[in-house]
Amino acid sequence: MDRRSENEIIFRTDDVTKVYDTGEVKVYALAGVDLELYASELTVLLGPSGSGKSTLLNILGGLDHATSGDVWFRDLQLSALNDRELTRYRRDNVGFVFQFSNLVPSLSARENVALVTDIAPDPMPPEEALSLVGLGHRLDHFPAEMSGGEQQRVAIARAIAKRPDVLLCDEPTGALDSRTGITVLQALKDINDRFGTTTAVITHNASIRKMAHRVIRFQDGRIGEVEVNETRIDPKDIEW
C-alpha cells in the first residue's frame, strides 16, 4: 500500500460490456464493468467460472475487443485501436502469464525469453529476467527438460523481460501443485515489489487474495465487491 501511488490510474474501464452472440441467445460475459487499476498495484481478480474476469483481462491486454464501453490504458483508448495498433500496444506495454506456460518447445529457456527481448524497445537481458525468477542456472534447458513450475517461471521471465508497465496473469498457478505454485507467486510478488509493475492476477484460489493490495470479486459479468488488504502476506505463508 505504501508503494501504491494513489493518483496514477493505469487502466480505466467505463461501462464495458462483452456480449457473445450465438445466434439464438446472447451471453453477457461482461455486463457493464467500471474499474480502475492503479500504478504499482497488485490486484487479484476472484470469481467463479464464467464470471467475466478472464474476458476483462483479455480486453485490458488487447487480446479482445469490448462490445461496448470504453477502455483506457493511461491516455490510450484501447477500445478505439485496430488489430495492428493493439499488437503494438501489447508489444510495448503488456506482459502475459497464462495457466499453461505456452513455451516454444524448440527454444531453450534463454531463447524463449529472447523471443520477447528481440522485439521489445527496452528489454532486460534474458539472463537477468531468468535470474529474477530463480532460473539463472537453467538458461540452456529446453521446456522438455524442466518441471511445470520452472516452465511457468520461464513464462513469467518472458513476460517481464520487456519491462512491461503491466503484468496480466490468468490462473498462473492453475496447473501447478501448491509448492510449485508458491514459487511462481513469489516470483510475481518480487517483480511487483522491485519494479512496481502493475499486476493483475486471476485466480480461483481464494487464499491467494491475501498477497494482493486489492481484491476484486466478479459475479455474473459485474464487479461484486472490492476489498483492500491492509496487511498483505508473503506467498510462502499462504495456506493453499
Binding site: 499488437t87 503488456v94 505456452n102 516454444v104 518447445p105 522485439i119
Partner: peptide, 15 residues
C-alpha cells in the same frame, strides 16, 4: 499455440 503466444507477446502477423 506457439504462434498465438507470439501474437500475444506482441509479434506482428507478418512475423
Amino acid at each position: 499455440r506457439e504462434l498465438a503466444s507470439l501474437r500475444i507477446l506482441g509479434f506482428t502477423n507478418a512475423e
